[in-house]
Amino acid sequence: MLKRNLARLGALAGVAALVTAATLGTASASTSAPSLSLGSSGAGVWCVQHDINDILHLGLSEDGQFGPATQAAVKTFQANWGLQQDGIVGPQTGNYLFYYGDSYYNGTANGYCYSHLPTTW
């Protein structure tokens, strides 16, 4: 229990640091990217699948289709970070995926997911 609470505290501190960095003009994801849920498809879904695999090592298919397996993986991810387990990647879940996911695709080195993940920044 203590480990989980410390992990959550660390996650919140990391998100706070990202928000601070975003206001200083460094890279962030898109505040205009749509939420992603069952039935969604495309680059944003691929980024979600890829980041979840990078973080949780679930072996989720990275096919860009938001089906039941992706929804279940999103719920697992949300549960691990103490987020609402609705299976939807909105700005709050997107913040965590963007921050903790693959830094190559989410960061300035490649930036592929830069405009596809919904966030609050």
Score class of each variant (00 low, 15 high):
residue 24 L to G: 12
residue 3 K to H: 10
residue 43 A to Q: 13
residue 93 T to W: 04
residue 53 N to S: 06
residue 51 D to S: 09
residue 63 D to Y: 07
residue 48 V to N: 04
residue 104 Y to A: 12
residue 46 W to E: 15
residue 11 A to N: 10
residue 45 V to S: 04
residue 104 Y to K: 14
residue 43 A to E: 11
residue 57 H to Q: 15
residue 95 N to H: 05
residue 90 G to H: 03
residue 78 Q to Y: 03
residue 45 V to N: 02
residue 60 L to G: 02
residue 87 G to N: 10
residue 41 S to D: 09
residue 22 A to T: 09
residue 101 G to L: 02
residue 59 G to K: 05
residue 30 S to H: 02
residue 108 T to I: 13
residue 9 L to S: 13
residue 60 L to C: 08
residue 23 T to D: 11
residue 35 S to W: 06
residue 61 S to Q: 14
residue 1 M to D: 13
residue 23 T to K: 12
residue 43 A to C: 09
residue 117 L to S: 00
residue 80 N to G: 11
residue 86 D to N: 10
residue 46 W to Q: 15
residue 61 S to D: 12
residue 102 D to P: 00
residue 91 P to E: 08
residue 109 A to N: 14
residue 116 H to M: 05
residue 42 G to H: 08
residue 44 G to Q: 04
residue 2 L to A: 13
residue 50 H to C: 02
residue 60 L to V: 07
residue 42 G to F: 04
residue 32 S to V: 07
residue 53 N to G: 07
residue 12 L to W: 14
residue 68 P to E: 11
residue 24 L to P: 00
residue 72 A to H: 02
residue 81 W to Y: 15
residue 17 A to D: 11
residue 83 L to K: 03
residue 111 G to P: 02
residue 82 G to S: 05
residue 102 D to F: 00
residue 24 L to M: 13
residue 98 F to D: 02
residue 84 Q to V: 14
residue 46 W to D: 11
residue 72 A to C: 01
residue 92 Q to Y: 08
residue 42 G to I: 06
residue 119 T to G: 02
residue 39 G to W: 11
residue 31 T to V: 09
residue 59 G to W: 07
residue 75 K to S: 04
residue 114 Y to A: 15
residue 30 S to C: 05
residue 114 Y to E: 13
residue 41 S to L: 07
residue 20 T to H: 12
residue 26 T to N: 07
residue 75 K to F: 01
residue 79 A to I: 00
residue 54 D to H: 15
residue 31 T to A: 04
residue 109 A to L: 14
residue 70 T to V: 02
residue 104 Y to N: 14
residue 121 W to L: 05
residue 113 C to Y: 01
residue 74 V to H: 01
residue 43 A to Y: 03
residue 22 A to D: 11
residue 101 G to I: 04
residue 53 N to R: 09
residue 113 C to T: 03
residue 65 Q to W: 12
residue 4 R to P: 04
residue 68 P to C: 04
residue 48 V to G: 04
residue 90 G to N: 03
residue 6 L to D: 12
residue 37 S to C: 10
residue 100 Y to R: 04
residue 69 A to W: 06
residue 109 A to E: 13
residue 16 A to E: 11
residue 19 V to H: 14
residue 18 L to G: 09
residue 85 Q to H: 05
